[in-house]
């Protein structure tokens, strides 16, 4: 297990290194750069070229990459071409909002999906199963923006219970929990279904497996049977799905951020791309990709513990 963890961790480092190259090359391929955006349309070509020289954009790609990578390793993400401030500031502002939203969603999602998955799995085919499955499936099939607008129309406009937007909350959003209710509800509606279906399928498989039957015959009481004997096996597909969900949530769900005007990563990324603010785009993309890698690393390690038999494959 330790060996596997070390090897898998080593690969993650390699992945991150490759990612940094890919991210740099891709952002380099973007048409236009900050120099072209900074000026209005009347700017002459020589003015643009002069600015480009000032910003160091005319140097060869390899040189710029070396600079950038060196900065990354020393913790310096560069300077935003638009605001002039450090990129890490932009990153910190946008990531905290998204991370808070994702954390709240995950905190509710995991227990909810596990309970729904277990209940529907243990009573597969029953009325409860059919009703719950129908509801979760319907919620998944409704597009985010439709659901978001419906919720806003009902709870904000008609009933006036909840705020419909983060505009005006500025940096004090963390003091106003009511801001979270609607975005989290929309995010949950999409993710609970997928995750609970995975756990339901896993539960069904392990419910009929010989080890569950034998544990019951050895007098393991029902609740303990489900939590200690069944769930570890049933959770395997769910853990991988959870990593994908977490990744998706942290990457910022653009639709939700746009509807509720959440100042999160997706909004920041779109803004940075529009401004050709290359250092910000690079830093944001790399951070999100790194988070995705780490989440999948965690999921792989957990799955490995839950399904240790995989070591004999191949």
């Amino acid at each position: 297990m330790l060996r596997y963890a070390l090897r898998r961790g080593g690969w993650t480092v390699v992945q991150l290194a490759v990612l940094s190259v890919v991210v740099f090359l891709l952002t380099d391929l973007l048409p236009g750069d900050a120099a072209t955006v900074d000026f209005n349309e009347q700017a002459g070509l020589d003015q643009v070229a002069q600015l480009r020289e000032q910003m160091g954009l005319d140097r060869p790609a390899a040189e710029r990459f070396a600079d950038w990578a060196h900065g990354l390793l020393t913790g310096d993400l560069g300077t935003s071409l638009v605001g002039g401030g450090p990129v890490s500031g932009v990153l910190a502002r946008s990531v905290t909002a998204t991370a808070a939203l994702a954390a709240v969603t995950l905190l509710l999602l995991v227990p909810l999906a596990v309970v729904i998955g277990l209940v529907t799995g243990l009573r597969a085919g029953s009325r409860t199963d059919r009703v719950v499955s129908a509801v979760t499936l319907t919620l998944t099939s409704v597009p985010d923006f439709v659901l978001a607008l419906l919720l806003v129309a009902l709870f904000s406009l008609r009933l006036g219970w909840l705020p419909s937007t983060w505009v005006g909350a500025d940096d004090l959003w963390w003091q106003r929990p009511e801001l979270f209710v609607l975005p989290v509800a929309v995010l949950l509606a999409r993710t609970v279904c997928v995750l609970s279906r995975q756990i339901r399928a896993g539960t069904l498989t392990s419910l009929n497996a010989g080890y569950t039957v034998q544990a019951r015959r050895l007098g393991v009481p029902p609740v303990r049977l489900v939590l200690r004997h069944l769930l570890p096996n049933a959770a395997v597909p769910g853990v991988q799905e959870l990593a994908r969900t977490g990744d998706h949530l942290l990457g910022g769900v653009l639709v939700v951020e746009a509807v509720f005007a959440v100042p999160g990563t997706a909004t920041a990324l779109v803004e940075a791309v529009q401004n050709r603010d290359v250092p910000t785009v690079q830093a944001l993309t790399l951070t999100l990709a790194a988070v995705a890698c780490l989440l999948n690393l965690a999921a792989d390690l957990v799955s490995r513990r839950l399904a240790p038999r995989t070591e004999v494959l191949r």
């Binding site: 034998q214 200690r228 004997h229 240790p308």
Partner: peptide, 14 residues
């Protein structure tokens, strides 16, 4: 009770 095929009776994750 001990079943006939113990391979299926042991929990692979425990």
């Amino acid at each position: 009770y001990m079943p006939q095929h113990p391979a299926h009776a042991l929990n692979p994750a425990r």
